[in-house]
Structures are given as structure tokens and as C-alpha cells.
Design a protein around this nucleic acid. Structure first.
Lengths: 124, 124, 124, 124
DNA sequence: GTGGTCTAGACCACA
DNA sequence: GTGGTCTAGACCACG
């Protein structure tokens, strides 16, 4: 019953998440070319198949498009990207809220804390 | 030959974080005994020294008290625990807000999204 | 088979104390580099981990600063060093006073003895 | 050039010092019997010869008297004990003053610090 | 090179 | 039994 502590999520998922974050943050814009499978594999230090799998999964979800012989590109479908960005944000938010619930905070507490976190008063 | 890839915090820190979460969630209450160093080491699959280090760090922070020959116990200092819980919550919140900022959301967007994430729970 | 017999403080603490004394006496000045962990380990004849531990404890107390890949340096924070020097002196003094109390000397005796111990130096 | 860190003074001297302190503190009074050599050796975990040597050294200095077949006793010579007590105290004091000098304190600083250490103001 | 983490296993002090 | 110190040696991250 040994925990691993180190990331238990499959590596290809982790890699995908990194690309999705880059896309949502705008580091990779619609139409931009992702690094080639081999290139990314070297950079990240994993097997090219692992990279390929994350590209395929992103293609399945409509996030990227693969063009034979040319490479993999961020989709030009802006709505898709908007949706993705919103989904990412909402996931993060609901994870946070769950955690705070587990810590025993009420919804009221939570919104107070969050709101006060966003308007940092400059006391000093 | 598996690369770990994602930001790998030291194991002893991760272990500490797990215990802190358990304490903040109330799974471990003030005065409760933590598993012995050796026991936890077996359970988690790491070296006893690694567990010891996380216990010592928690002791240094006043989260647990350790009594030679008896064990390690959650502090009875309730204020400390309250502080810890709040700190944990605020950290999580500020991490979230950073991420959402990076995704290009304005403070206004963020509070809207968060508030609407919490209302469904009241209806259901 | 030699018993150590007298109160044996942990080695890493003793090592720390030696460094602190050197710093307080000005042998190691603000910004000076401490010997590398491995070097000090050889010199002193202990395991590098033991040296590391004393360095880490000094860092925790703000006495030294450690820069990855570069080394460990005496803090530039002069106030800290002043504080340290004073603390060291006061500790030594209170230890002495305790001992003299145990020997049955009254505060009056003690100050007389100390004052007369210091005057000869002025004459000589 | 390995430091030892652990007490470098000969064991028999350390043992003697412990007895002298006990005598000066009045735990062992004039005429009291010291433990037998064998007894003390067991208690302390050293060779009986080591104990014997410390007893002999104390006898040489007139601190104890050994009576064949009866044991070793604290001297009845009160002046001797007074002298011993004073010597012990003055040694400790001069050691302290040396240390404080090395830390860069002036005689003036030293007497101020010591005097203020002895009249602990109860602020709280 | 530097510091830092981790393991394996010994040995100690306290109770 | 408990926590705590120490060693030997591997391996990592940073520069």
C-alpha cells in the first residue's frame, strides 16, 4: 500500500495539460505550430509515442489539428478555445471550492475570503 | 527510466503537506497521535528519516509536539491550528487567482465565475 | 570503548556553535564564504550530512545565507550579527551566574568577585 | 587534523571536576564518604583505575583523604574547601571574561551586562 | 564544483 | 517501543 506521492497521473495527460495551459494563456495562439513529436520528446525527455498520444488526445478534443507531413497546429476555432479556457478556469475553481469545503469553510466564508484576496489593501 | 517531469517538491515536504491537510480537515484532532516514524515510513514506502524530517519540520512550525519515547502529537494550541487552516485556505486561493489571471481573466470575471460556481449548491 | 561521559550535545549543534563563535569573534566576516560542506566534513572528520545540517540550522536562524551551486555565506545583515553576539554573551553570563549560585555565592559576592577580576587588567 | 568535538580532556580529570563541583556545591560535605572506587567505576561506566586516578589527584590536592580499608572522604579542612570553592568560581569568571573579550566587549560593557543580568527586571 | 534530498542501516536516549 | 543522531554513499539541481 505504498503511496507514490510523485505524480500518479499518466505522463501523456500531464504533457497535454501543459500544452492546454500554454494555449489558454495565449503563449500558443490559434494556428501556431506545436513542436514536432520528436522535438518535444527530446525536450521533455520522454518517448515520442508519449508525446504523440497527447497530441492525439488533443486532436480528439478538437484543440489541435494534425496535418500530415506538416505538423500539429492549434485549432483556429476560436469558440473552441474560449470554451476550453472557460472549462479550465471552472475546473480550477470547483477544485478550490471543494478543498475549502473540506477545510470546513461555509460558502459565505469562501466568497468573503476570495473577494478580500482580490483587492489587496496596501497597508504599508 | 520514468522521468517525473512535473515540479517535484521534496518528498518530506509533500508528506508534511498531507499531514497538515489532515489536521486542518479535522481528521487528526488536537492531541491526536500521529503514526510512529517507522510505521508511517512503512505505510508510505519511504525511509524513516524522511518521515522524521517532516515531523521535525512540523514541530519547528508548532503544528505538532513530539515527546521522546512517546510519539508525535497534534498540538493542543487551537489558535495555531486556526491560523494554519486559514493560511492553507489563503494559499490555495491565491494560487487559483494567479492561474486565472494568467488565463487572462479580469478580477471582475473571476469574482463572477466564483460566485456563480457557488450558487448552484444552494439550490440543489 | 571510550565512554564520552560528559553531556554530549549533538555533533551538528557543536559544529554550529563553533561557526557561530567564529562569526561573533569576527574571524568570519559578513559575506565571507564558509568552507564547502564536503570540505568542512573532511576537516572536521564527520559526515557531510552532519555539516549540512549545521549549515541548514544556521540558515534557518538567519546567520548564514546559502546559494545553490555557490556555497554558504555569512549573512550581510549586521543587526542579526549584533543580536547574535549579544545573545552569545548573555548566554555565557547566565550560565556562569547559575554556576556561582549553585556554589552558594550571593549576588553581592558575585558582583564583587567579577569586578575585582576585571580591575587587575586595567593596572597591568 | 580531525577535531574530535567530543570532550578532549582526559576522563579522569572530568570525573575529578564532577566531584569537586559536588563538594563545592555542598552535595558532598566535609567528612562525607565518596563512593568506593569499584562502585563509582560501575556507575560511571569506566575502568576502576580511572576513578582511582581521580581520587589520587584529589588527595594530592588535599581535597579528599583516603583511609586504607575504609574509603575516601571529603577533607575536614574547611579552609581548604573554602579556597577550592573560591578558586573554582574565579576560574569560571576569568574564562567568561576571556570569552567576552574575544567577542569584542570592553570591560565596561562586560560589567554592565553582568550586573544587569543579575537584577532580572520583571517587566511582565 | 556547490548545496539538497533520499536511502539503508546502526546506535543512542528516554520511558 | 518512541523519537533523534550519525554514517556511507547515491543521486539530483543549479551554475
Amino acid at each position: 500500500m505504498t503511496h507514490s506521492f510523485l505524480p500518479s497521473q499518466p505522463i501523456y495527460t500531464q504533457i497535454m495539460d501543459v500544452f492546454i495551459e500554454r494555449i489558454c494563456r495565449g503563449e500558443l495562439k490559434p494556428g501556431d505550430k506545436l513542436p514536432s513529436v520528436r522535438e518535444a520528446a527530446l525536450e521533455v525527455g520522454v518517448n515520442p509515442n508519449t508525446i504523440l498520444r497527447s497530441y492525439m488526445e488533443m486532436e480528439r478534443r478538437g484543440i489541435v489539428e494534425t496535418r500530415r507531413g506538416q505538423g500539429t497546429f492549434v485549432t483556429l476555432n476560436i469558440e473552441m478555445l474560449e470554451y476550453l479556457r472557460k472549462e479550465l478556469a471552472e475546473n480550477q475553481i470547483s477544485i478550490l471550492i471543494d478543498k475549502l469545503n473540506q477545510l470546513g469553510y461555509t460558502p459565505q466564508d469562501i466568497s468573503n475570503m476570495i473577494l478580500s484576496s482580490m483587492q489587496p489593501k496596501e497597508d504599508a
